[in-house]
Structures are given as C-alpha cells and as structure tokens.
Computed example of a mutant assay.
Amino acid sequence: MAQTNSSEAKSGWLLISPPAIYAALLLAAPLATVVIYSVLTGEKGAVSLPFTIENYTELVQKPIYRVLMGRSLMISFLVTLATVLLAYPIAYYVSFYVKPSKKALWLFLITIPFWTSYIIRVSLWRTILGYDGIVDSIVMGLGLSDTQLNILSNGVASIIITLAHAYAPFAVLPIFVSLEKVDRSLLEAGQDLGESRWMTFLRVTLPLSLPGVIAAVLIVFIPTVGDYVTPELIGGGKTPMIANLMETQMLKQRDQAMGSAIAVAAMTIVAVISLIFVLLNRRFLGGRK
C-alpha cells in the first residue's frame, strides 16, 4: 500500500513538474531579480554591491512617491467600483433574462473588445473624450452646453472612464459564473414567502454572488494600480501613476535599483490590500453560512 502511494506521488510530481518549472522561470525568477535589485546600489545605468536600504528610505522620505502611490490607489479603487457597478447588471441580465441557448452568443459579444489592441482602444477614447470629440459634438449639438467639455483635460476622470471600459469584460465573466450557480429555487422560495423581487435580490442573489464580485474586484484592482499605457496616452503624461514613475526610473534615469524598489513597494501595498479584502470578505461569507 505504501509503495503504491509512493509511486502515485512520484507520478503526481512528474505531472506538475513542467508547469512548476515554467512558472518558476517566468514568474519567480524575474520577481526575485527585482527584489534583489531593490536592495543594491544603482549608478550609471547599472546595479552593484553593497546591499543597501537607501532606496526604500528615499521612498518613505520623498513626498512624490507617496503622492503617486496614493493617486494610483485612488484611481484603481474608483475604476474597480465603476467597473463592478457596470458589469454586475450586464452579468445579471445575461444570467437571468437571456435564453440559455443565447447566453454563449452574449458572452461572445462581451469579449469582442479583446479582438483589438489595447492601445487602439485607449486611442479611440482620446477621440471620444478629447476636445471637439464625439462627446463634445453630441453635447453641443443638443444644446446642453455652449463650450467644449474636453473631458480629456480632466486626467483622472478620463483615465477612470477608459480603464473601466477596458476591464469591464474581466468583471462580467466571474460575476456571470457566480450568478449561474445561484439556485433558482431559493429565489422562488423567497417570493413564495412574500418577499419582493428587490428584497429577494438583496437577501439571496447578491450574497450568493459575492464570490464572483470579489473575484471581479481583485481582477480589476490589481492590474489597474500598475497601469502604464492609459495615463500616458489618455492623460498625456500629465496625470502619472506609479507605473509611469517606474518607467522613468528604469529607462530615463537608468536607475534600476530605485525602479525595482518602487515596484517592490507597490506590489507589497497591493498584496496587503488585496489580502485584507479577501480575508474580510471570507469572514463575511463565512458568517452568512
């Protein structure tokens, strides 16, 4: 019996070895390199010994790093909120009101934006939100305003709109999967007991779909904190986020050590916030059970 378990264990290790090695080479090795670089001395476009924590000391002492990190977190929180509020009704409609035979078609249509380059989608929003763009033409054509709105001039607002659109499909899919798992008989039971549709949604549907909402929040929040392209193209570089500062340190200042320290600090902050969010929601969901 023990010999059988040993052979099964060896077979299991052989099966997971290729993907484990692949993940280690593509994920763990680069991450370890960034962490090591962050505690080295950076000069003249290279890193060298001795080890030092001066990079992290500078991060704490200089206000510019705190400002950009705070702006990145704020924008990411707002983008996540807007994206989930946009995605939930779409996922709910597809799950509860679309015929089962047509749900695949709807999901296919939702993923169509992925067919085009992310940069092209961001550039199109410049045309929509910019001066004398589509929004300005519609507003002035309807007589709602005598002046150009030029939403693009408001860097934060334009970045939030663009990112919310770009990440909406990422939020729709996990929420849809979660809603599909909701037992419809529970909803019927709630209405049979005299609950309105709205109260049934609040007491049954929404709590049961929270795992999908949590997944959507994390899927959107984590990458948007480190988004680089949108602030550069939409904000015109006038509303930089933490990723833009990393690019400046790495490529323009050629200070790989400082750029790595910024990356490690940003990853740590995002990881802590995400972990706290998951633990709080796990406790909430566990309490409801």
Rank of each mutant, 00 (worst) to 15 (best):
E8Y: 08
W13G: 01
I16K: 11
S17R: 05
P18D: 04
P19S: 11
Y22T: 01
L27H: 08
V34M: 12
V35G: 08
I36E: 15
I36G: 01
L40Q: 14
T41D: 12
T41H: 11
E43T: 00
E43M: 00
K44C: 00
A46H: 09
S48H: 12
E54K: 14
P63S: 11
Y65V: 02
L68I: 12
G70D: 12
R71V: 02
M74H: 09
M74V: 11
I75R: 04
S76Q: 05
F77C: 09
T80Y: 13
T80E: 01
A82W: 02
L85M: 09
I90Q: 07
A91S: 09
S95N: 06
S95W: 08
S95Q: 04
Y97A: 04
V98R: 13
V98G: 05
P100S: 13
S101Q: 12
K102D: 12
K103H: 05
A104T: 11
A104L: 11
L105M: 15
L107N: 09
F108K: 06
L109P: 10
W115Q: 06
S117Y: 13
Y118M: 12
I119A: 13
Y131L: 07
I134L: 15
V139W: 03
M140I: 05
T147K: 15
N150L: 02
I161V: 15
A164T: 10
A166P: 00
P169G: 06
A171W: 03
E180Y: 10
V182Y: 13
L187H: 01
Q191L: 09
G194C: 01
G194K: 11
G194R: 01
E195K: 04
W198F: 14
W198E: 07
L206Y: 14
L208M: 07
S209K: 02
A215F: 03
V217R: 03
I222R: 02
Y228M: 06
V229C: 05
T230M: 08
P231K: 03
K238W: 01
K238A: 11
L245K: 12
L245M: 14
L251P: 01
A257V: 03
G259A: 10
A261C: 07
I262S: 07
T268V: 14
V270M: 10
V270T: 11
S274A: 15
V278Q: 12
R282A: 10
R283N: 15
F284S: 09
F284P: 00
G287V: 02
R288F: 10
K289L: 14
